[in-house]
């Protein structure tokens, strides 16, 4: 069954030009939420509390991009479209980009560089603690996202490091959950999506090994093996 699936997979690989076009499109699409927020701010269309709207908007999109990034692998497995993994780095970096903007709105717009208040907040407010921890954990992932870093670390170590994205997902959802006053409907939706994405991975890992023995012993190794030509 595995080999039967592999045949059409290879056939579905887009050409280098097509892939470049897809990446360009994706790059622009990922910037749309930010452009939309900026436009709304410019038009004074963010409601009575624009600073809150910007902070929340950027936080929501950080979480969206995180979940979208986590969708790549299960989607790839389900559809057989292996080339999807070529889009993952950009999605991950956009997650980091939105996370940085989100953190910046907190430091600048919300606290106005009151460092002692910020340190105090991080230490004392669990929702800020976990949010900040999630951002800290994103840092090494962003730093090691280049091809050179992947080669330097080696596939397996790189992969082990990048599995921390699962923890980041949990922290990010907690950050949202603990911040809402009472109505946890939306955080619950995010939690369920995250749970589904993580569960799909767990099921994969436990699934009976495919034909090739060596790889099957470490299915995770093929899971996120970095392709050297990723750009």
């Amino acid at each position: 069954m595995a080999s039967a699936q592999h045949m059409p997979r290879r056939a579905a690989v887009p050409s280098a030009t097509t892939l470049r076009a897809i990446k360009c499109l994706l790059f622009v699409a990922c910037a749309v939420p930010l452009a939309h927020l900026a436009w709304a701010a410019w038009q004074d269309d963010l409601g009575a509390n624009p600073i809150e709207a910007i902070t929340r908007g950027l936080g929501t999109w950080t979480l969206n991009f995180l979940l979208i990034t986590l969708t790549v692998t299960p989607l790839r497995k389900l559809t057989g479209l292996d080339w999807l993994v070529r889009l993952r780095r950009m999605l991950g970096l956009y997650t980091f980009f939105y996370a940085c903007l989100h953190l910046m709105t907190y430091v600048w717009l919300d606290q106005f560089f009151d460092w002692s208040a910020i340190v105090h907040d991080i230490a004392k407010r669990p929702f800020i603690t976990v949010g900040f921890a999630a951002w800290l954990l994103l840092l090494p992932l962003a730093v090691t996202s280049t091809n050179a870093m992947m080669r330097w670390l080696g596939g397996r170590r790189w992969q082990r490091l990048h599995r921390s994205v699962y923890a980041i997902g949990v922290l990010a959802v907690l950050h949202y959950w603990w911040l809402v006053k009472k109505d946890v409907t939306l955080p619950l939706v995010y939690a369920l999506v995250l749970a589904l994405l993580l569960a799909l991975r767990a099921v994969r890992r436990r699934a009976p090994p495919p034909a090739s023995g060596k790889l099957a012993a470490r299915p995770a190794a093929t899971f996120v093996k970095p392709a050297p030509d990723q750009a």
Partner: peptide
Amino acid sequence: RWSQATERRLGEF
């Protein structure tokens, strides 16, 4: 879960 020491008056930066 959060500080009550400060507040944002709507319309103020």
